[in-house]
C-alpha cells in the first residue's frame, strides 16, 4: 500500500521546465532517497511532495488524500537549518510540539522538547540560541524539532549538505537511530547529492536526472546486506572506538 504517491508531476518556472513526468511512490515506513546534482530541481520536488509548493500538473496523495498545503502530521528538515535565531534551542523545538499536541499542558510540551533534545545529545545546550551553536548542533536542533512533533512522514531536504564529513557521519547515525526509536513506521523522503549517504540510510534510491525537464530514474533497491554492513561500518567509525576526542570536538 502506497503511503505517499506523486503522479505525473510537472513544474516550470516561466518558460523553464524544472520537473517533468515525475512518478514516485513510498510505502509506509519506507526510507527513500532522491539523489541528484545541484540545481536539478531536487528541492522543488521535495517542496511539491510536502505541499509547500504546488505543481503545475499532477497530484500528490498522502494516505489516500490529495495534498493541498503542507501535509498534516509531517516534519521537514531544511538544508540551512531554518531555526528561529531569537528563540533558544528548547523554544525552537517546543514551537513544533505545541501545535502537534494541542491537548497537552505547557509542562508536557517542554518535557517532550527536552526529551528529543536529549536524544540528539543537546540536553545541556537547550537554553542556547542558534548563534551560540555550531552548524552540526544547529542541524541536531532542527532534527529534534522535526521528530519531536512525532510525524508520520518526514521530508529531508539535503539535511546534512552544509556539514563537514565527520559531523555528517555522526548525524546520519543519529537520524537512523531516531527513525528506529520512533516505535512506529516513519516514512522518510530524503533529498541528497551524496550517494554514500543515500545508500547508508535508505531502502530505495531514485536518481533525478539533470534539468531542465528532469525526470526520475527507476528506483534502485539497496541490498539489505549492504545496509547492515554500512551501518556496522559507520557505527564503528562514529562509536568512539577510533577517535572519540576528535568526534566530540567536531560535535
Amino acid at each position: 500500500m502506497s503511503f505517499l504517491t506523486l503522479e505525473n508531476i510537472a513544474k516550470s518556472f516561466g518558460p523553464r521546465s524544472i520537473l517533468h513526468n515525475i512518478n514516485l511512490s513510498l510505502a509506509a515506513g519506507e526510507f527513500v532517497s532522491i539523489v541528484g546534482a545541484s540545481a536539478s530541481g531536487k528541492t522543488t520536488l521535495v517542496k511539491i511532495a510536502s505541499g509547500l509548493q504546488t505543481a503545475d500538473s499532477g497530484t500528490v496523495t498522502v494516505a489516500g488524500q490529495t495534498v493541498t498545503g503542507f501535509v498534516a502530521q509531517a516534519g521537514m528538515v531544511f538544508q540551512n537549518y531554518s531555526l528561529l535565531p531569537w528563540l533558544s534551542a528548547l523554544e525552537n523545538v517546543r514551537l513544533a510540539v505545541e501545535p502537534a499536541f494541542p491537548e497537552w499542558t505547557p509542562k508536557q510540551h517542554t518535557e517532550q522538547a527536552m526529551k528529543y533534545l536529549d536524544m540528539v545529545g543537546l540536553g545541556k545546550a537547550a537554553l542556547k540560541t542558534p548563534a551560540q551553536l555550531s552548524g552540526g548542533m544547529r542541524q541536531r536542533v532542527a532534527i529534534a524539532r522535526a521528530f519531536a512533533a512525532e510525524p508520520r512522514i518526514l521530508f529531508l531536504d539535503e539535511p546534512f549538505g552544509a556539514l563537514d564529513a565527520l559531523t555528517r557521519a555522526t548525524l546520519q547515525q543519529e537520524l537512523a537511530s531516531l527513525c528506529r526509536a520512533a516505535g512506529r513506521p516513519v516514512t522518510v523522503l530524503m533529498i541528497t547529492n551524496n550517494i554514500e549517504e543515500a545508500i547508508l540510510l535508505s531502502h530505495r534510491i531514485h536518481v533525478l536526472g539533470r534539468g531542465p525537464g528532469a525526470t526520475l530514474s527507476p528506483s534502485f533497491a539497496v541490498e539489505p546486506d549492504a545496509v547492515s554492513l554500512r551501518h556496522r561500518l559507520a557505527e564503528f567509525l562514529t562509536s568512539g572506538a577510533i577517535a572519540p576526542r576528535l568526534i566530540q570536538e567536531v560535535a
Binding site: S50, F70, A72, F78, S82, L95, E98, P99
Partner: peptide, 24 residues
C-alpha cells in the same frame, strides 16, 4: 521565505506565527 515555510511546516496558528516569527 524560509521563515514562512517554517510556519507552514510547524503548522503555527496565525497568532503564533505573528508573535514568534513576524514580530521578532
Amino acid at each position: 521565505q524560509d521563515y514562512h515555510n517554517v510556519a507552514k511546516v510547524l503548522r503555527l496558528s496565525p497568532w503564533r506565527k505573528f508573535t514568534k516569527i513576524m514580530l521578532p
